[in-house]
Design a protein around this nucleic acid. Structure first.
Lengths: 175, 175
DNA sequence: AAATTTACGTCAGTCATATTGACTTATTTC
DNA sequence: GAAATAAGTCAATATGACTGACGTAAATTT
């Protein structure tokens, strides 16, 4: 933490802007802080391996969706092929992911997590799961469903069906 | 979109991992997708100005908290002083933010958004607000509160009080 | 059978965001 | 006066992303 000193607690004479009443600023900021801390646990663990957040995302979706194609992964992550290249290459070289030609279409290089890969993916997942579990703990069942719906509805409408199908491996539910 | 082709719709013979039943994988993935799309609107707008996501975060919190100190901003963003430097400098040079010596402690350089700065911050906020509003639209009042609590509880426990105070400008509420 | 499209990989160059570590200046506090 | 704090700055580096162009193999279309 070298030079970063924490203090916060802003009591300054802040006249704070009129804040248009139709803007849910609190939700905007909460989403920022929630995501900031949500990613902090795996980021710390990944540093041990010399990996970054990009490796995590790739590994996660491959682990969850064995046989994923490169093209699918690009669509999921909303990045370009070139951005994926180095990260994927590293994961393959270090034996977290392996590629196999598609049995029906041999142009495809289907992606699978190795045992090592699954193990790391699971470890990272547990870190995030723990945070989520405790965040949902106080909520009644309807509250949990509401939180889930909220997140789902934050996704671009034209992407929702794909996402629903993708995560449908685990639990089923549309909106 | 150069080379990224969308298709998705993963129907492959995915044996999918046993998926430890105690891990809320759907929520992990939904949070990823929700945040991915949440940031996409302002990112597109910022590109017009030659700014990036980092500029947005700085401008937002300064606009919302006039008189913020550099140290506070570092704590809020969880970045280092060096990472902030260039972004802040650009925003000051292009007249979105101005710095003033603290009236009581003259070592401090308090940060304020200029008119331009407030205008841009508001424009970006409205983009995100619109997405949030429509995501909350179907939910009953308790559901909205649940979504809010969920996000709040995702924050590191020792940071919650600070965050609550920070966003308390607008709406009040602790957990 | 030839032409086109698709899936994937790769080269080269660039940019934005972030990091660490060290050092300076001004100012306040002890 | 010494020590601590707030902020700025320098240099070097890593990571994640981008654009644009090109190559290869395989599948699909015509």
């Amino acid at each position: 933490m070298t030079d970063v000193n924490f203090s916060l607690s802003v009591d300054r004479p802040s006249p704070a802007r009129p804040a248009p009443s139709d803007v849910p600023i609190d939700m905007i900021e909460l989403l920022f802080f929630a995501y900031r801390d949500f990613t902090s646990d795996p980021d710390a663990a990944l540093a041990e391996f010399g990996f970054g957040r990009a490796h995590h995302r790739v590994l996660h979706f491959v682990s969850r969706n064995p046989g994923l194609r490169v093209t699918d992964l690009l669509a999921i992550l909303s990045i370009t092929k070139q951005s994926l290249a180095r990260v994927l290459k590293q994961l393959v070289e270090e034996d977290y992911i392996l590629q196999e030609p598609g049995p029906v279409d041999r142009r495809e290089r289907l992606l699978f997590a190795t045992e090592r890969g699954h193990a790391l993916a699971l470890r990272l997942m547990r870190l995030q799961a723990e945070r989520i579990r405790s965040a949902l703990a106080d909520l009644p069942q309807e509250g949990r469903e509401a939180a889930r719906s909220f997140l789902y509805n934050m996704i671009d409408p034209d992407q929702r069906a794909d996402v629903a199908q993708l995560i449908g491996h685990n639990k089923d539910q549309a909106p």
